[in-house]
Design a binder for these strands. Structure first.
Lengths: 333, 333
DNA sequence: CCGAGTTGTCGAAGCGTTTCAACACCCTAA
DNA sequence: TTAGGGTGTTGAAACGCTTCGACAACTCGG
């Protein structure tokens, strides 16, 4: 194993000089720097992560706690993860992947100084992890918005506003017989933060616009999506407007609508909450509130970095929704 | 920050005694152990990961290099990842998530002693990472099977056998007009290991059974799947048997078949290569070679652990396919 | 030509563990 | 009674890095 000592000897300088060339925390003459860098390249030196962590109290690792469970929508999760990992790397950070189902994962990686900051996904309205991270030295960023966010920074898509806007888009077009096909029942039962806010927004807007409030959760399996749609059609036979927030269900619902003889948008208008690529890739491009999942992951990292640089402002950032009109909405006939 | 010193003082023993109680590498009397454990609990002590790594040359971290690109099938990837992470945790290992697109990620985490072993996904037939990991002190497990696997352990689903079996299932039923809808063009162009083996197996079996060999790649977007299916139907108008290996395309293809007036399995038999839950969740449960992605991830971890325990046997494990008959195949009329 | 900065380099003291060699103790067999 | 062999515990030396304070060698204004 090649150490900083080997580099120093080879370059004819002291160990500390090598360290300072690497970190840039002191000025180093151009010629010295060059010799050190050559030695590093020749020896193929990589600093020992553990030693570095011990001496500097920094690991350059983030913990990302992601929901590796079947009931959440994999493609969106992946986008968050991708956003986090790629942005972290640009700041020379690595990402440690944790699951929810370890009881004290937070304490272990936090108190054990394994990571410099934590990013938590799939936040619930009253999330048990919040007191845990609050006890930590490391800053934490939540992707999601709990009821009580004291002391932790949050970032998320503004699902409440998104739900309101989606419905308003339909009612503004003149639709009165509308419904929402929402997240899986399990997600709602857990009071996952986004689901709570989504439903709250939808209910408020339905009341505000004076339309009936029909909400049907849908599981991730195709059969469940069909069942949910049929349940909606039973409750609202005259249905002309549908809001869908459920990645997995979207294609199935569109296919089933066709099966049932309902054309989109002539008979039924559909608004989705989904990443742009998903909405765009459907047989009929879907008018949607684009969920910028990749971007939210990146913002989470940026907030973590800011905190590590000393900013102690705990903030909540809600990404405002923008409705992207595609071909799936029209006035009712 | 509470250190092993604090624990030792509190328990009235030496630092090394605490260390040995934690590691179990020396016998400790029951009474001492109890005192130490109480001190640990009372102080909420967690060993410092960096210090531990430095002293023991072990980090208890695996690197998992996963394809965070859009053209691979997210749901299968997620299953691999989930299998790896959960199994790793049962052995007290954490998982560091790396992407492919960092040039020397392998060297950085390997030479930097950040991880004890590496697990590489999305392996290509002639993967440039193989020489990199070969130069490392740490063992590496590939999920996939490159052309030249010297020195590295591999584990994967036997896609070649799976393709042969799928096709043979159709020909044995009497189908002569068959086709394969395969992975996205980009995956094939990169010579992703599984795609290479899949096509090889299919071609061999087609020749062996004396049926035409029609292969159509399909992108992940719904539109592309439709296009692929139509291309197949143009080339083989009398089509009665279809093998599909493409998670994302499967539901779309089934829907489109219905649109085109072809019933499954009365008019067209469909065999898929897909995880059991995906195959099972379709409107018509699909006869499939179940891809045990979760399990493969776990096996990868087990192989890594074995190597870390000193076994230096470099092995290649191919998980044999088993055909699970559901309702999507029947003899041609 | 002197003193005060400025710049570039160095030595050494940690950082919190693990682990090796040593040792004290008790038990047993001779 | 003593030698010999476990048991259980300890002190101290690593492990490879960062960082602080010190200092030599310059530069520059007065």
């Amino acid at each position: 194993m090649v150490t900083i000592n080997d580099v120093a000897r080879r370059a004819g300088v002291s160990v500390s000089t090598v360290s300072y060339t690497l970190s840039g925390k002191r000025t180093i003459s151009a010629s010295t720097r060059a010799r050190v860098e050559r030695a590093i390249a020749e020896l193929g030196y990589h600093p020992h992560a553990g030693a570095r962590a011990l001496a500097s109290a920094r690991t350059n690792i983030f913990a990302l706690m992601a929901p590796l469970r079947p009931d959440v929508d994999v493609s969106v999760i992946m986008q968050f993860v991708t956003g986090v990992v790629t942005r972290a790397r640009t700041a020379d950070y690595d990402v440690l992947l944790l699951t929810q189902d370890e009881a004290d994962g937070v304490g272990r990686v936090g108190s054990g100084s394994l990571v410099d900051a934590l990013i938590l996904m799939d936040v619930e309205s009253d999330d048990p992890r919040i007191p845990q991270v609050a006890a930590l030295r490391q800053p934490t960023i939540l992707i999601g918005l709990p009821e009580d966010a004291r002391g932790v920074s949050c970032v998320d898509f503004d699902f409440e506003a998104a739900a309101r806007l989606s419905l308003r888009h339909l009612t503004a077009l003149g639709h009165r017989n509308v419904a929402l096909i929402g997240p899986p029942p399990a997600v709602i039962a857990r009071h996952t933060s986004y689901a709570d806010r989504l439903l709250r927004g939808y209910r408020a807007q339905a009341e505000h616009d004076g339309v009936g409030c029909v909400i049907e959760p849908a599981g991730t399996a195709p059969g469940e999506a069909v069942a949910a749609l049929d349940a909606v059609l039973t409750q609202v036979p005259e249905l002309t407007g549908l809001v869908v927030h459920n990645e997995a269900a979207l294609p199935v619902i569109l296919a089933t609508l066709r099966d049932r003889g309902r054309r989109v948008p002539e008979d039924i208008s559909v608004v989705a909450l989904a990443p742009a690529d998903v909405a765009d890739a459907q047989p009929v491009p879907i008018t949607a509130m684009d969920i910028p999942a990749l971007n939210i992951g990146q913002v989470a990292v940026d907030m973590a970095l800011a905190r590590l640089r000393g900013s102690d402002t705990v903030e909540t950032r809600l990404i405002a929704p923008t409705l992207h009109e595609r071909s799936s909405t029209a006035p009712p006939r």
